[in-house]
Design a protein around this nucleic acid. Sequence first.
DNA 1: CCCTGAACCTGACCGC
DNA 2: TGCGGTCAGGTTCAGG
Length: 284
Amino acid sequence: MPELPEVETTRRGIEPHLTGRQITSLRVRESRLRWPVPDDLASRIVTERVIAVRRRAKYLLLSFPRGWVLIHLGMSGSLRLLDASTAPAKHDHIDFVLDDGKALRYTDPRRFGAVLWMDKLEGELEIQDKLIAGLGPEPLILPGLEYPRVQPFDGAYLYARSRGKKAPVKTFIMDNHVVVGVGNIYANEALFMAGIRPTREAGAISLVRYKRLAEAIIEVLSRAIEQGGTTLRDFVGGDGKPGYFKQELQVYGRGGLNCRRCERVLKEVRLGQRTTVYCACCQR
DNA sequence: CCCTGAACCTGACCGC
DNA sequence: TGCGGTCAGGTTCAGG
């Protein structure tokens, strides 16, 4: 379900309900996620208050006095706010019970997501964690972000990073070490918007075209956040509303259909184990 | 270091 | 109705 716009939509949905609230208990019904939920997680947060709800890449970060709860939604995860007394359904793995009778509930059928704890170092805001440390720059400058370091994201950056790379440009921009938050949907969309064929060798693309691509990535992600994300199956934001960006998809999920720009049949190929759709006419 | 493919897991859908 | 195969929004890891 979640790419960056969906994670950001989730963050915005839950933030006002969590900030300043105290955790009264933690219910872990299933701890076998991508990594085991730490046994001592409850001891870190119960009786503590949520300072802020932030984000780095697709990681949601609940800030507490002594550290962060790091939440990743994987492929099928979601977070909802509901009454703490609501009976859990299948795949409702974790409840963060709040002092106002509500609970933040983590659901994840495939269990590719993660809920972990990271200590704060001596009051430092900097996050020192191997999951976070090697991440590339954020494509969007937004409030609520946790920046470990400042790195500009633009065409010049992509151009410099891509020199010598033989991998397809789509694989390149989906690499979190290069830039975060560009998943399969928006990689396809951004490349269409920039007129670049996804199979093109990353190291062979010009600076001018990378400038267009960086702009396209920023544009498509911004637009998707405005629309509340993309609802493909059952994604809903923290407020229960679906995302409306699906209506604006130009290529993702449209292989074999006609290009909305030139009317020719869209090609579908497999790149890095991911379905890739493009227009052979509009994208070179 | 670079690149590719397997792996993690469940559910939905499609053809037979 | 059932069975097997395929696919799904992400990321890490092993191996060449």
